[in-house]
Design a protein around this nucleic acid. Structure first.
Length: 725
DNA sequence: CATCACGCTGTTTTT
DNA sequence: CAGCGTGATG
């Protein structure tokens, strides 16, 4: 080991509260840490301190919100103390659960080969079980698959029955409460029968293991004698219980969090865990970190004023020793395209002043809120990386490919088997079901599907698939080879099924490299599920070295930038109106803005398309709530002095709306498309986007066109803007 | 039985 | 805008 210079000078490097947190090594500790108060720093130093005190790194457990956060912290600790810090166990609750369950799941009746399902898998299974409920045909209002998954998952995470959750939070589905309850039970037994665990099961099953198997609890408590939990405000009741069991024997547990940054209630997280910690561990020390090391005082005055309006919180007031700084600017950008142009202008202006793009981040609530801005940035050649909302793993072609690997890794994975069977020509829902049943009855492995008697004589499609499965099921195939085998088989299918074949094929070509880092298919698939890529940059690391960051607020947690621009797209704006049914939603929205604003070191811009608040009632469900004009409702209720108000005119001239008449003049059509003989699949040309294919008719005067070269896949266009080719 | 076309409808964030 | 269910078509 490297012989580090003298001991770390903790007193000189930490403030008194941080120092207390770092040097209290035994017993339960609750650290209430405001944004930018050196929370991560405190954890890093504490890891270093523990290691310095000769605590074996294997005995330290650092639970964080993402695995990336954990490895970065351990990296930093290693830089401070020594290399041993890297051997500390770090990760998310889910990855810990996964690790433990892979070795002990047989105690719960699972084999070691269980498959982890992501959200999309869960939806697929749940949807497939709906038919067993025998809900009347006329039930138009039955929740769709994603809502079903949300309901079932939330009931688990809130530890309540489906029925009472529906009563509480999904009253529009009250008439189906019984059906949903049954669906939950069907789903549970389906998972048991097919060796499947979803994200929630990982937590539930770890808790069960700890609760019901004393020996395993002892084993883990002995292994992890010092436990630290970051972002404790984002844990749910199950996770809190896991912590309680893990540390029941020794009580050496430090949890760190900020109730004001709790933004995951949608998955059952509750900052109440922070208040309850001292009740579970009555001897807990409580340490508050209130000095902020990140932002200027004007930014903090704004965020303090914002949170002062919150009704549920640990009161704290952040201050800094930094002097100077401008108050945040609140800018009414009026409309979304103007907002995009404004932000682009802002970025250009900062750049001209010599700021690197990497100093700037644009944050927003939902991933699609940045679409307009992405187009605008592309038009002006401003490079950016986007984090959040990137569903690489959920795109159909990736799921198709991985489904083959999953069948090879777990023959019981009926969802994946069905998926790959349906890709074969002439095999649809009916036959795939029949094949799966035949396999089960005859006790054969999936790679025997070529022998299926129902095919009549021989079925070449099934036989080809069977040989692929046989090849990739061989233990001597490396994950990389398996991926390549399946890609070769899948390529013609992909070409046939998707119009944008080249882009999708390019995605698939990223997979072999990812796979080559793994020794088994199983671990490759597990990692992809537990830590899917969150940005396109994760796939193509050769991005420009200096680029702007675009991120959802959720993905920006724990990060900071000198300049932060927050854009809150106008609510009620297409595609979907957002209504706030209750005060809790509004409170979380406020905390979200708090998280976004506290990412800023020096300059903060708040952009919102101003629109009046107004009451709204869904036509269908009768849910009452109100739209609000993005940030405007928060901004309006704050004292004048914490913000400078402005309009976009000061910094950028609004882009002119596209001139429809000019486009029409350029168009080759006079009448309506369909009437003029346009058909699906016809090739057309657009003056701006180039050649494309008609993919769908929408109503009387719109058509969907697929453009291969445009940044966007699909566009709605009036027929008259198109030229027939 | 598989596949295609079209009308209807509406919350989002992630392990 | 995109997913879903349904009815028409092969």
């Amino acid at each position: 080991m490297v012989d580090q210079a003298a001991q770390i000078d903790y007193e000189g490097l930490l403030n008194p509260a941080q120092l207390q947190a770092v040097t209290t090594l035994e017993g339960p500790v609750l650290v209430i840490a405001g944004a930018g108060s050196g929370k991560t720093r405190t954890l890093v130093y504490r890891v270093a301190r523990l290691v310095e005190e000769e605590i074996p790194p294997d005995n330290i457990l650092l639970l964080t919100f993402t695995r990336k956060a954990a490895s970065e912290m351990l990296e930093r600790a290693a830089g401070l103390a020594d290399e041993r810090c890297r051997r500390v166990s770090g990760g998310t609750f889910h990855s810990l659960a996964h690790r433990v369950l892979r070795s002990h799941a047989e105690r719960l009746g699972f084999g070691p080969r269980f498959t982890i399902m992501d959200r999309a898998d869960m939806e697929e299974v749940v949807q497939s079980l709906v038919k067993d409920l025998h809900v009347g045909k006329g039930s138009v209002r039955f929740p769709k698959r994603s809502t079903l998954a949300t309901i079932l998952s939330k009931a688990v995470n809130l530890q309540t029955s489906v029925e009472s959750l529906v009563e509480e939070e999904f009253s529009q589905f009250l008439e189906y409460a019984g059906h949903l309850q049954t669906l939950g039970e069907l789903y549970r037994s389906y998972k048991r029968n097919n060796q499947l665990m979803d994200y929630d099961d990982l937590l539930i099953n770890l808790r069960r293991l700890l609760k019901e198997h004393e020996d395993i609890r002892r084993l883990l408590a002995e292994q992890y004698r010092y436990i630290m939990v970051d972002e404790y405000q984002d844990t749910n009741g199950i996770q809190a219980e896991i912590i309680r069991w893990l540390s029941a024997d020794h009580g050496n547990v430090m949890v760190v969090g900020d109730d004001s940054q709790s933004i995951y209630s949608f998955r059952g997280a509750s900052f109440r865990n922070m208040f309850e910690f001292p009740e579970i561990f009555p001897e807990a020390r409580v340490i508050k970190l209130e000095e902020n090391y990140r932002s200027t005082q004007p930014i903090l005055s704004f965020t303090n004023a914002l949170m002062a309006r919150a009704s549920q919180k640990y009161a704290k007031c952040l201050t800094t020793r930094r002097t100077g700084g401008d108050p945040p600017r609140a800018v009414d950008t009026r409309t979304e395209p103007e907002q995009a142009a404004f932000v682009r202008g802002l970025v250009q202006q900062q750049r001209e002043r010599g700021r690197p793009l990497s100093d700037i981040a644009v944050l927003f609530r939902a991933a699609f809120h940045s679409f307009e801005l992405e187009l605008e940035l592309a038009r002006h050649d401003i490079p950016f990386v986007k984090y959040g909302g990137f569903k690489f793993m959920e795109s159909a072609h990736i799921k198709d490919l991985l489904a083959h690997l999953r069948v090879a890794a777990n023959a019981d994975d009926a969802v994946s088997l069905g998926r790959i069977l349906r890709l074969v020509k002439q095999i649809g829902p009916g036959k795939s079901q029949a094949i799966a049943e035949w396999l089960k009855e005859s006790g054969r492995e999936p790679h025997h599907i070529g022998e299926w008697p129902g095919a009549g004589k021989r079925h070449s499609g099934l036989e080809t698939l069977a040989s692929v499965l046989e090849r990739i099921s061989k233990p001597d195939q490396s994950p990389r080879e398996a991926v390549e085998t399946v890609t070769a088989y899948y390529e013609p299918i992909l070409r046939e099924r998707f119009d944008d074949f080249p882009k999708r094929m390019n995605d698939l070509q990223q997979l072999p490299n990812m796979a080559s880092r793994y020794r088994s298919l199983r671990s490759f698939l597990d990692d992809l599920t537990l830590e899917p890529p969150t940005s396109s940059a994760d796939l193509e690391p050769q991005r420009p070295s200096d680029c702007l960051t675009l991120s959802t607020v959720h993905s920006a947690k724990g990060l900071e930038w000198p300049v932060v621009v927050v854009i809150w797209v106008m609510e009620g704006y297409f595609p979907s109106p957002r209504a706030y049914g209750n005060e809790d939603d509004l409170e979380e929205e406020r905390r979200l803005l708090y998280v976004a604003a506290t990412r800023a070191r020096d300059d903060l811009y708040l952009c919102y398309p101003g629109m009046e608040s107004r009451p709204v009632r869904y036509a269908s469900g009768g849910v009452e709530g109100y739209f609000h004009g993005g940030l405007s409702s928060f901004v309006r209720e704050l004292p004048e002095e914490v913000l400078v108000h402005g309009t976009n005119r000061q910094l950028a001239r609004p882009r002119r709306a596209p001139d429809r008449r000019a486009l029409r003049a350029m168009a080759g059509f006079e009448g309506r498309g369909k009437a003029e003989g346009l058909r699906l699949g016809d090739r057309v040309k657009h003056p701006a986007f180039g050649p494309g294919v008609i993919s769908r008719f929408r109503g009387e005067d719109k058509v969907e066109v697929l453009f291969r070269n445009a940044g966007r896949k699909l566009l709605h266009l009036e027929y008259t803007t198109l030229e027939k080719m």
